[in-house]
Amino acid sequence: MIHAMLHPLEALGLQAAGPMEQFQILPIIPLTLGDIDISFTNSALWMTIGVAAIIVFFAMATGRRALIPGRLQSMAEILHEFVANLVRDTIGHDGKKFFPYVFTLFIYIFVANYFGLIPSIPGSAHELHTFTTTSHIIVTFSLAMVTITIVLVYGFAKNGLKFLKLFAPAGLPFVLYFLIVPIEIISFLSRPISLGVRLFANMLAGHIILKLFAGFVISLLGAGGFAMILSIAPFLGSVAIFLLEFLVAGLQAYVFAILTCIYLSDAAHAAEH
């Protein structure tokens, strides 16, 4: 019934896709590694586009390496200083060796979040629709696990068994340790989950709401008559949500980076607790 109503709009390439369609993983080039399916999908495509864009940007920004920087070089330097300050302020002197990782993490998530906000080309194949790679929990959770793995490996390598003091801060009454140690362990184990879920959930919710509002606009336009006038309301709503998502995209990349720094700082300074 809805399809019949939407026909004239569909001709323009405007079709009300379900709010979950944007998250579908669609293979573009089927590939397998042994028994494992590692097809080049729309997700992989947007990861590649994001990384390629970052590489092109930095290649152009660092091409001249002028004493007096141009616009691109200024942007790259501001990004560099921004993340460098973040790392220095949270981790301290030991932070230097983690700077490339935190920077890569930040810029990767930042670009993935923002590229996900680009509207798809109307009428293009579903495989080529804009895809937010960070809206998939497996991606954000994997990134979180990388961070936690680094924390564990570096923590034990630097502090040895004193790393375990992270779970038992010094200077508490003995009885309290029965309470504190399990709490600390649970809090440590929940870190990768909260880190991964925070980013994933923000992206997921934002894009669903965005798509719902957009869907309402299309439905109301398709209904014709008085309803067409009412479609302005969800349209303005989707603009407002888009602005919010624009903020969230940058903010969540920052939050991911700063939490990574805080966890790394714990690993660097565990023995001092």
């Binding site: 590939l31 997700s43 992989a44 994001g50 990384v51 590489i55 810029i107 497996i138 990388v146």
Partner: peptide, 21 residues
């Protein structure tokens, strides 16, 4: 779809990390 996503995340992230660092 997870193995494919993890694989391509690892590939793209590793390339970016290598170039950056």
């Amino acid at each position: 779809t997870w193995p494919s996503q993890i694989f391509w995340l690892a590939v793209t992230f590793a390339i970016l990390y290598w170039l950056m660092s």
